[in-house]
Amino acid sequence: MSIQHFRVALIPFFAAFCLPVFAHPETLVKVKDAEDQLGARVGYIELDLNSGKILESFRPEERFPMMSTFKVLLCGAVLSRVDAGQEQLGRRIHYSQNDLVEYSPVTEKHLTDGMTVRELCSAAITMSDNTAANLLLTTIGGPKELTAFLHNMGDHVTRLDRWEPELNEAIPNDERDTTMPAAMATTLRKLLTGELLTLASRQQLIDWMEADKVAGPLLRSALPAGWFIADKSGAGERGSRGIIAALGPDGKPSRIVVIYTTGSQATMDERNRQIAEIGASLIKHW
Rank of each mutant, 00 (worst) to 15 (best):
H24I: 08
E26V: 14
E26F: 15
T27C: 06
L28F: 09
K30D: 04
K32D: 06
E35D: 05
L38N: 12
R41D: 14
L47Q: 08
N50V: 09
G52L: 05
S57T: 07
R59K: 15
P60F: 15
P60R: 14
E61V: 11
P65K: 04
M66N: 01
M66Q: 06
L74C: 05
C75M: 06
G76E: 00
V78C: 06
A84Q: 13
G85T: 07
Q86L: 05
E87R: 03
R92G: 10
S96F: 08
Q97C: 12
N98M: 06
D99H: 13
D99N: 10
L100W: 05
S104V: 04
S104H: 05
S104M: 03
T107K: 00
E108H: 15
H110T: 15
L111S: 09
G114V: 03
L120M: 06
I125N: 03
I125L: 10
L135A: 14
G141P: 04
G142M: 03
K144N: 11
F149I: 15
F149V: 13
L150C: 14
H151V: 08
H151P: 04
D155G: 02
V157E: 12
R159T: 14
L160F: 06
L160H: 06
D161L: 03
E164K: 00
L167I: 11
I171M: 14
I171W: 15
P172M: 12
E175W: 13
R176A: 07
T179A: 03
M180F: 07
P181Y: 02
P181Q: 02
P181H: 00
A182N: 07
A182V: 09
A183I: 10
A185I: 03
L188S: 05
L188N: 02
L191N: 03
L196E: 06
S201F: 04
Q204S: 14
L205C: 02
L205S: 00
L205M: 09
D207Y: 10
D207L: 10
M209S: 00
A211T: 10
A211F: 15
D212H: 04
D212G: 13
V214T: 09
V214R: 13
A215T: 14
R220C: 04
A222P: 10
P224I: 04
W227H: 01
F228I: 09
F228T: 05
F228W: 07
A230W: 03
K232L: 00
S233P: 05
G234M: 06
G234D: 02
E237H: 14
E237S: 09
G239R: 02
G239N: 06
P249Y: 06
P253F: 06
Y260E: 00
G263P: 05
S264T: 12
A266K: 06
M268Q: 13
N272A: 14
R273Y: 07
R273N: 11
I275W: 03
A276D: 07
L282G: 04
L282E: 04
I283L: 12
K284Q: 07
W286G: 02
W286M: 14
W286D: 02
